[in-house]
Design a protein around this nucleic acid. Structure first.
Lengths: 158, 158
DNA sequence: TTTGTTGCAAAACGTTTGCAGCCTC
DNA sequence: GAGGCTGCAAACGTTTTGCAACAAA
């Protein structure tokens, strides 16, 4: 089963993700509907960022779902932290699977909206060693804005 | 004139901000309309975050402007980096004046939603020294999520 | 005079909501 | 069986757009 979703860390196989979701649903007395699992499965077989519309279109290919259910399920997945939401100025809210990790660095092209993730030990250390008098950190999101090489090239020509 | 806008670093007085805007308008062959300057002035006499609607209502008090012009002008101010835009998941996009500084750190309480800004030299250095192969950084936004002391206290009691 | 910019209102568009029927529990 | 969840379509609310009038260059 796991193989279907490609190489993945042992502790975050689709099976364990599904289990986390089930636990959440049971705990909060929500129903375990096939639609919800289909959406979770589709998200975890997808690489990179996506938005509700993209996800909906992918699901429609071999499943009957409504956009409303997609939004509804994304809300649940946000609540149990299996998905992270980004609202980066574009029209769409963007989402990504969360794998249980809470630290996210992103570079965002201010022209085409393309997002890439990266990791940087120095940045992580600097942020995590920050302490506040009246605030307890749980996780962070860093967005570095700028131009990707393609857009920089395009804009130079104009 | 500067006094009207409170204590402000010499190099970022309203006069110099206005000059930056004028230069931008001239360079890009946009017109120097009174509406655009009125909007800029209102933004720079305002403390903290705001959204288009709030700005529009403030302006309407003693000026005849349309919401469309507010959005149009915000777009120009974003382009010349006198204003920064945040899209933090609420319905509204939030804006703030940029003062020429492009670095914004925020702590966000995940319980009550309160946003505070802070500065940290170590974090700034770590981020600004980051380089990318196919990406040119212009500015960044850091959001540290967690609990403010009030909410931490409240949740402990439950 | 030319044409970029304005206000106004209507349109756009991602997201949410209302509702009747369905299907977990 | 009860009521949470679904699909559908209509509604919502922020932002954008079309257009005639206006005013900066």
């Amino acid at each position: 089963m796991t193989a279907k979703y490609g190489i993945m860390k042992e502790e975050h196989s689709y099976e364990s993700i599904r289990e986390i979701f089930t636990e959440y649903l049971v705990l909060h007395q929500h129903r375990k509907t096939p639609e919800r699992y289909a959406i979770l499965e589709r998200i975890y077989s997808f690489e990179g960022h996506f938005n509700a519309e993209i996800l909906y279109n992918l699901l429609k290919e071999n499943y009957r779902v409504s956009l409303a259910t997609v939004y509804n399920t994304l809300e649940l997945l946000l609540a149990c932290k299996l998905v992270v939401k980004h609202q980066l100025g574009g029209k769409f809210a963007q989402y990504e699977k969360a794998f249980g990790s809470n630290t996210h660095n992103h570079s965002v092209c201010t022209n085409c909206g393309k997002i890439k993730e990266f990791s940087d030990k120095q940045i992580r250390t600097a942020i995590q060693s920050k302490t506040f008098a009246r605030f307890t950190m749980s996780h962070y999101s860093l967005y570095i804005y700028g131009l990707c090489s393609k857009c920089a090239e395009l804009l130079k020509k104009k």
